[in-house]
Write a protein that binds this DNA or RNA. Structure first.
Length: 268
DNA sequence: TTAAGTGTTGCTCT
DNA sequence: AAGAGCAACACTTA
């Protein structure tokens, strides 16, 4: 379930349960998940090491190691990081298991195998190498920066929001939610968004992402904890518009992704 | 049984 | 050149 808010939850899980503990062993259960590093080297680097600090950039989670650089985690469409107790079994679809000396475990889970885990020398160069734009919640990424980003582009606003090279962290679900709450049609050409609209979009973006983090995005109960006025709990074709406008939720395809929106309150 | 899915990359066509 | 469309990746669920 990993977009920015979900990855933020996984980051906090690691902070709470895995930081500053000696790594007794690491088991790579499926080597296909490793990006550019052989399982034996991965294991050698991690064993006896410690996770010192976490940092999130968009949907990427970067973990500084006590020695030898950074561990990089990306969760694809069906990934998760879960801490669990010494005597508990590893969750289903665990692809990498970290065993801490004190007995606790950390599981990197990826159901569809679309995530990637690797090692990097340096967080900044990793971000640059992946061509990532600023994190969507970076305080420096303000309304003016968003407006600048949108202004030269003919692409749909939704496509820009989801473009990790433009700004990092937003995927299909949260792009729909942000545009719904900002009352913008997903097909609006980016360059048609003027400064006041960009300001509103920016504020909505921050509110949605921050509220999602606060309500536990990535956890099982997340959707139930959301205000009923959000689109997310009503992502079904023909559902009544949760804003109460009287319209019905419709779908369209954008970039091969299903887009949910309310045609009556999100005018083009 | 078929299809669709909270991501990304790489290719093709315009 | 920018952008749209599509397949591929792997596997579950509706």
């Amino acid at each position: 379930m990993p977009e920015l808010p979900d990855v933020e939850l996984y980051r906090r899980r690691i902070d709470a349960a895995a930081l500053q503990r000696d790594i007794a062993d690491v088991e790579v259960l499926d080597a296909r998940i490793l990006d550019g590093v052989a399982p034996d080297r991965f294991r050698r680097v991690l064993r006896g090491n410690r996770l010192e600090a976490t940092r999130r950039h968009g949907k990427h989670l970067l973990v500084r190691l006590a020695r030898d650089g950074w561990l990089t985690l990306h969760f694809g469409m069906s990934g998760e990081a879960v801490a669990y107790g010494a005597d508990d079994p590893a969750p289903r679809f665990t692809r990498i298991r970290f065993d801490f000396a004190a007995g606790a475990h950390l599981a990197y889970i990826s159901r569809r195998m679309l995530g990637r885990v690797g090692l990097a020398d340096d967080a900044e160069s990793f971000i640059a190498a992946h061509g990532l734009g600023p994190d969507a919640l970076d305080p420096g990424f303000d309304a003016a920066a968003l407006h600048r980003l949108l202004s030269g582009r003919r692409k749909d606003v939704k496509a820009v929001l989801m473009d990790q090279g433009a700004l990092a962290g937003i995927g299909n679900i949260f792009a729909d939610e942000i545009l719904f709450q900002a009352r913008l049609h997903p097909r609006t050409p980016a360059q048609n968004i003027d400064q006041p609209k960009a300001r509103r979009l920016h504020q909505t973006m921050r509110e949605v992402l921050e509220k999602a983090i606060e309500r536990g995005a990535g956890s099982e109960q997340f959707v139930e904890r959301l205000p009923a006025t959000w689109l997310l709990p009503h992502r079904r074709k023909d559902a009544p518009c949760p804003a109460g406008c009287g319209g019905t939720v419709a779908t369209l395809k954008s970039g091969g992704r299903t887009t949910y929106f309310c045609p009556s309150c999100q005018r083009a």
